[in-house]
């Protein structure tokens, strides 16, 4: 628990900034929908947004439909995107930070094995990611209950929405373990943000190609895509990827020469 505590103390500030930014975005989306319904925003502007995002490959919803549950799926894609980026960056940074800040010198002079450091760091990242995702869902449903009370029951009873909650979490964890694994392949001087950012971007772009779809975690559970194209095989592949990257990362970490200044 001492490593988990250490990690929580260190990442408290950046965690709050990420969370606040994400909640701010959710509030903006909710207000946008409110404004649209009340006619304060002309529908064509909203449709233009949808058209742009369609070009970017974000959405597959009909622009004629602004029912809340569909709108929810539409804007949740952006939230999901942030969750995935957060998890990739966290995964890429969680082990490397000890070496870039030279604190590994302290940590690994303690009576602790490399496997335990790796496992504790992974648990810390997993808990932080889970907290990030859970808090966002709670805020999301609270805001929906507040601003769209009639929609909350429909959303909660929609099996596919609940499946999205579960599978987006799995995707985020897959990105976390992928970030963790990939970060161990790079020299310690390479920035974790660059590694995580490039990694996410590559997997995201790959997802546009239907032939390479299975190489992009993002497209596995892309919420807009999910409603129409989900299959259980993707879920199995996702869980397998989490296990494989976790084990491969552990093997690399146990054999690694730490960078000590």
């Amino acid at each position: 628990m001492n490593i988990v505590n250490l990690e929580f103390k260190q990442r408290k500030k950046s965690f709050i900034i990420w969370l606040a930014s994400c909640i701010f975005l959710i509030i903006l989306f909710m207000l946008l929908h409110q404004a649209m319904i009340s006619g304060q925003i002309e529908r064509p502007i909203f449709f233009k947004i949808i058209n742009i995002t369609k070009i970017l490959g974000f959405t597959s919803i009909s622009s004629d439909n602004i029912q809340f549950d569909t709108y929810f799926i539409y804007f949740y894609q952006y939230i999901f995107l942030i969750q995935c980026i957060f998890c990739t960056l966290l995964g890429a940074d969680i082990l490397r930070k000890e070496e870039t800040s030279n604190t590994i010198q302290y940590l690994y002079s303690m009576p602790i094995s490399r496997a335990k450091i790796y496992f504790s760091k992974f648990i810390s990242a997993l808990l932080l990611s889970t907290m990030f995702i859970v808090v966002i869902w709670v805020v999301l449903f609270c805001l929906i209950a507040l601003l769209q009370p009639s929609s909350i029951a429909t959303l909660l009873l929609n099996r596919k929405i609940l499946l999205i909650v579960f599978y987006t979490y799995l995707t985020a964890v897959a990105y976390l373990t992928l970030g963790l694994f990939i970060s161990l392949l790079f020299k310690i001087s390479t920035s974790s943000v660059i590694i995580g950012g490039i990694l996410f971007l590559i997997t995201y772009i790959i997802g546009f190609s239907s032939e390479l779809e299975y190489l992009s975690f993002y497209k596995y559970i892309d919420p807009g895509h999910f409603l129409y194209h989900f299959n259980e095989l993707k879920a199995i592949l996702l869980i397998s990827a989490i296990i494989i990257f976790f084990i491969a990362g552990m093997i690399l970490y146990k054999k690694r020469d730490f960078k000590i200044n």
């Binding site: 103390k9 260190q10 408290k12 800040s101 604190t103 010198q105 302290y106 002079s109 200044n261």
Partner: peptide, 22 residues
């Protein structure tokens, strides 16, 4: 056996680094 013998040994580095927020 690094984790085991480190219960009985300690280390003073030439340049010490610790967690900034602690």
């Amino acid at each position: 056996k690094s984790a085991k013998f480190k219960r009985y040994i300690n280390y003073i580095p030439s340049h010490a680094y610790y967690y900034a927020i602690m």
